[in-house]
């Protein structure tokens, strides 16, 4: 059963990567530990997981401080594309990297769908020590 959850998470990432203009995707825990990834070889998944957790953590705190309601996602805009870090349930975050030509409307819909599935899988897969 342990392997089953991991496989399903990997499946979600593979699906995201297949979308046009998507460079890579990774699932990290909110405290910066890597859960699963589908990233190009040039990226270090563990480092990206830690950084994404810091971005989401700081963004969430900023949102609370500014009284802007609850946090959904952080989008980092760059010369080449965008990095979207989205909360996936209580435990996890989904990071998606896309090139600038991506259709953001469609992409965000896919990200939303992915995030819901991730939250469900992780919730069902808890096995305490």
């Amino acid at each position: 059963m342990l392997g089953d959850a991991a496989r399903r998470l990997q499946g979600i990432l593979t699906e995201l990567r297949r979308l046009p203009a998507v460079l890579g995707a990774t699932i990290a825990r909110r405290d910066g530990i890597l859960i699963a990834h589908a990233l190009p070889k040039t990226m270090d998944p563990k480092k990206i997981a830690a950084m994404a957790a810091a971005i989401v953590g700081t963004s969430e705190m900023a949102v609370v401080e500014m009284g802007l309601g609850s946090f959904n996602s952080s989008i980092v805009d760059t010369q080449i594309g965008k990095m979207i870090a989205t909360g996936a349930g209580e435990e996890a975050i989904l990071v998606t990297m896309v090139r600038n030509e991506a259709n953001m409307g469609l992409l965000l819909l896919s990200v939303d769908k992915a995030v819901q599935s991730i939250a469900e899988i992780l919730k069902a897969a808890e096995v305490p020590a």
Binding site: L2, A5, I35, L122, A125, V127, P128
Partner: peptide, 13 residues
């Protein structure tokens, strides 16, 4: 031996 799964990560000890 013990295995646990928390937040999607398997831990063996």
């Amino acid at each position: 031996f013990q295995s646990s799964l928390r937040g999607g990560i398997v831990r063996n000890s």
